[in-house]
């Protein structure tokens, strides 16, 4: 574990120094919205945001990408990204989500080369939360507003400066490499950081989701799913904005003489997701689809990976046009 500190006004220098060797991705304003994007020389890093509307998964597993073109004799894969990249400013919940996606996309038997190339070239600096939102519940799902899971370095905002702490050897190496910009924090700065971390965690409310996996399992035949789904509009907001939802499709498109294979995010809440060529659909009703989505996150991944694939970021709650609230689903679905 190594510590570092940087005054906020010097962050631009860090961006420039890292940017000279590769990409620097961080929180910047785009169309009046704070987004994660590659930081351009004209950009200023934004540090006061609750979280981004879109989760960081898109940087590793884009909404859509051309993965290969059809050559005369087989497929030609799209060149994988090279060079180093730094991802700065993801919230600890979102950093945690990357460790879950790793379990799906980087498992030994069939690793996803596109996801892996992007992950392996990226150093992640998470930014601890000062003011968790009312919809945040990271502490109920194995997270914390200053959690280090999925981060190489955790940065804590202490007002005029950030205090950094390495969480992995890669993070340690980064702090050493940029030691000139990332000096050692003073004792007071470390104290300020510890106070910041302690106050933030108190702001996150617990949703009482203990034993949720077993409870949901017992509810799988409950009529409550259909009742809940009555209000659901059947859009994909909850899935596309979820940092851990990873359903996708592969599609062959004829574009130009060669044709190409596209991989695009998809959503299990759409009826067409499971529609078979014969017209048969194993999940015909919205209740079945909603149940599947919730069970996948809170039961199936717990069984197959040992982790609940929810980081408590609250995006699905904030953005649902029908005010579906996963916190209620988790605590109120009766068996």
């Amino acid at each position: 574990m190594t510590l570092g500190a940087i005054k906020k006004e010097h962050l631009g220098q860090l961006v420039a120094a890292v940017g000279a060797h590769g990409g620097f991705y961080g929180p910047v304003l785009r169309d009046n919205d704070v987004c994660l994007d590659q930081v351009q020389p004209s950009d200023t890093l934004v540090l006061d945001y609750a979280n981004f509307t879109l989760p960081p998964k898109g940087l590793f597993f884009p909404r859509s990408e051309v993965i290969a073109t059809h050559g005369a004799d087989g497929m030609v894969e799209t060149p994988l990204p090279t060079g180093k990249a730094v991802l700065f400013g993801v919230r600890p919940c979102d950093a945690m989500s990357l460790t879950y996606l790793d379990k799906v996309f980087m498992e030994a038997q069939f690793a996803d080369p596109y996801y892996r190339a992007r992950r392996e070239r990226t150093l992640t600096i998470a930014l601890a939360c000062r003011d968790p939102a009312a919809t945040c519940f990271c502490t109920s799902v194995a997270g914390s507003p200053s959690g280090q899971g999925g981060a190489d370095i955790l940065a804590v905002d202490i007002g005029d400066a950030l205090v950094l702490e390495s969480a992995t050897p890669a993070g340690e190496a980064f702090l050493a490499e940029y030691r000139k910009l990332l000096g050692r924090p003073s004792d007071n700065q470390v104290k300020a950081r510890d106070a910041q971390v302690a106050q933030a965690v108190r702001k996150v409310s617990s949703i009482g989701s203990d034993g949720v996996t077993a409870r949901l399992q017992a509810s799988s035949e409950s009529a409550a799913w259909e009742e809940l789904a009555e209000r659901c509009l059947g859009c994909g907001v909850c899935t596309f904005l979820c940092p851990t939802c990873h359903c996708f499709g592969l599609y062959d498109e004829e574009v130009g003489p060669q044709g190409r294979r596209v991989r695009a995010q998809d959503a299990c809440v759409f009826p067409a997701f499971t529609l078979e060529a014969s017209g048969h659909n194993p999940r015909t009703r919205q209740g079945l689809r909603m149940r599947h989505r919730v069970m996948h996150k809170f039961c199936y991944t717990a069984q197959s990976f040992g982790d609940i694939f929810c980081v408590g970021c609250g995006r699905c709650i904030v953005n649902c046009p029908a005010n579906m609230d996963i916190r209620e689903t988790l605590t109120e679905v009766p068996p």
Binding site: H246, C247, G249, E276, A277, M295, Y300
Partner: peptide, 19 residues
């Protein structure tokens, strides 16, 4: 069993039944 599939390698989520 038969289900709609896309990736064939346990990632894309289409053919999931009870985990």
């Amino acid at each position: 069993l038969e289900r709609r599939m896309s990736c064939g390698i346990g990632k894309c989520g289409r053919c999931s039944i009870g985990g």
